[in-house]
Design a protein around this nucleic acid. Structure first.
Lengths: 354, 354
DNA sequence: ATGAAAGCGCTAACAG
DNA sequence: CTGTTAGCGCTTTCAT
């Protein structure tokens, strides 16, 4: 059937929105075949400069936009990577930013699916699967490893920012322990010898960061001074932990905290108790989120390298799809310490140097 | 990308991922036609209980998942609503949560497209358009109204959380002015008579909230005491404004702030200056984001009704699609005041009552 | 360089 | 209730 351009108005009554133009419309207008238009639209070689121009012109006039659904349906590979993220987690926002650029460079598109209080990870993943994603990147997933592992039988899965050990799962994460080494080394270099740690409760990464803290103290011969206080990932958790910190018999002069949000709570309580930071207490966070960068907080913190994290995550996903399978399943990205205003020499050490 | 040592594996030896099953596969396995399978999978009437069971069984065994692209391509209506959101804005996360449930109830799916520092709104919208969304919901868009208006010639557009006036645009927003009335009324009831306001700089909603502040003061006969300090949406903006506040000749006893993040910065500076909140200064924020709810902040704030906001946004979009066109283009949702710990009677008033 | 034609996986008439 | 059939808009041989 020859369908003219967008002139056929069948339903007369409703203010009918014009049907969006298709390849055929553009072809008709440019006086060429649909195949040729397809070639031009994809920017692949196989069309003369002249028809290329004519087609582009026609497409422009019609306001033509390729239909990605149809395109994807036809071509075997969708060049689509599915991403799940938590709406509650600001850090995931930073990761999304990096993922978009990394995916674009690799010639892939992203399909987003949010995990919300009313929409669990399973549903988020299911919708991605329906969209024919070729691979999945899961940001801080909390599903059981067994479920994630099962997913890999369907498509490549890359887990970001959560340490899971499974032979079928790719993991891209920050070297949490190393980050704590950097934090402790910095404090020791400043002259601190009584350094406490506030951990992350049940959050992923807690164990690893705590281990890093202990290792670092050990290396400095300070193992017996280690104090680990229960914490969590919120400001409130930090506030609670800070009170415990202040109640300690022999008060530390510095504290490393599981993350920046928690550290903010700590700072708050310290200030409230009339202590000065860093004079009376040095504080180091983890993540370098927007909170830490605020000038009036100026938190010294261990910064996760989101650019590397996201670039590697996409590289992994694409690698699996290409079949250029890397042997190593886990990519660990070193973080780096960002020194701001919440760390300094301890009062005693300062006194001694005078 | 580190593709190093891995030799390129040829098609043949690559562990070939099984092609995902199609309707035809399920049909073959169940011994019925594809049409019947389609009927069963969509859950529409027109199949016997027996074949329904057989088909479901076959689908299950094959791990069949309908291909939404193909499905959408075929049916004229995609039942897809596109949503753009800012990855920097925590409040958008809350809105997404509501949108998902509202869309589901209306029988629509959501297609998400993020606006990031490296991906502007235009691109976010373009990708949604390619995905054949039937309508667009834009969260706090910052594109010029002319661009948004032009979009409506292609499909219905609902703007959330930004006040734009245009006859072709649906807008769902909070009654910002009313919210400020509530805030000011609350402070006046507590006995405050010198109330300042810190505005939102160039952020959407700034003018409206400032207007509300002025109106409310006026109604209480306090118009001549109005003080508006330039602010913004970040903690730093709040900190800066707070310093200006403290430097004021005749210091106010209370301040309403453009949003919670900004208010947090204000609180911080106040505490740093040795002031006690609310004894020396009452503070009210706007948004009721997670920040405000933290126990050690406990910010009194004007809460936006995200549930209503999102429900109305979806209702609007669907309404335009249905042709059940509402006359009114703007839906304004009343917010409500959440009183926490940062507001109280002013010291002077308290002294007088004794 | 260009065009004709065959589907991708699915839905929606229309028969039976 | 079930099957047949014709496309949705696009890519992709395979001719010309």
């Amino acid at each position: 059937m020859i369908r003219g351009y967008c002139v056929d108005v069948t339903e007369a009554e409703r203010p009918n929105r014009p049907r969006r133009p298709t390849l055929a419309d553009v072809a008709a207008r440019a006086g060429v075949s649909v195949a040729l238009v397809s070639i031009v639209m994809r920017g692949v070689p196989g069309a003369s400069a002249d028809s290329r121009r004519r087609v582009m012109e026609a497409a422009d006039e019609l306001g033509y936009r390729p239909d990605s659904r149809a395109r994807l349906l036809r071509s075997s590979n969708s060049r689509l990577i599915g991403v799940t993220f938590g709406v509650q987690h600001p850090f995931h926002g930073d990761l999304l930013t990096g993922l978009y650029t990394a995916a674009e460079e690799a010639g892939y598109e992203l399909a987003l699916s949010a995990v919300t209080p009313g929409r669990d990870e399973g549903r988020a993943v299911a919708s991605l699967l329906q969209d024919r994603c070729e691979a999945l990147i899961l940001l801080g997933p909390h599903s059981p490893t067994s479920y994630l592992a099962e997913l890999t039988t369907r498509l490549p899965v890359v887990v970001v920012a959560r340490a899971v050990r499974h032979r079928a799962l790719d993991v891209v994460r920050t070297a949490d322990a190393l980050g704590m080494h950097q934090a402790v080394d910095h404090l020791v270099a400043l002259g601190h010898s009584r350094i406490a740690h506030i951990d992350g409760g049940r959050a992923p990464g807690t164990a690893e960061r705590r281990r890093g803290y202990r290792e670092a103290l050990d290396r400095h011969g300070l193992a017996d001074t280690a104090v680990v206080l229960p914490g969590g990932l919120t400001e409130d958790d930090g506030a609670t932990a800070a009170r415990a910190l202040l109640a300690l018999r022999q008060r530390p002069t510095a504290v490393t905290v599981f993350n920046d949000r928690c550290a903010t709570g700590v700072l708050d309580v310290l200030h409230g108790a009339g202590l000065s930071v860093p004079r009376d207490m040095s504080v180091i966070g983890f993540d370098d989120d927007r909170l830490a960068r605020l000038s009036h907080i100026a938190l010294t913190t261990v910064a996760q390298d989101t650019e590397q994290l996201t670039a590697q995550a996409v590289a992994r996903a694409v690698g699996r799809l290409d079949g250029t399978t890397a042997a190593e399943r886990e990519v660990v990205i070193p973080p780096h310490l960002v020194v701001r205003a919440t760390t300094g020499a301890p009062m005693q050490a300062f006194a001694e140097t005078i």
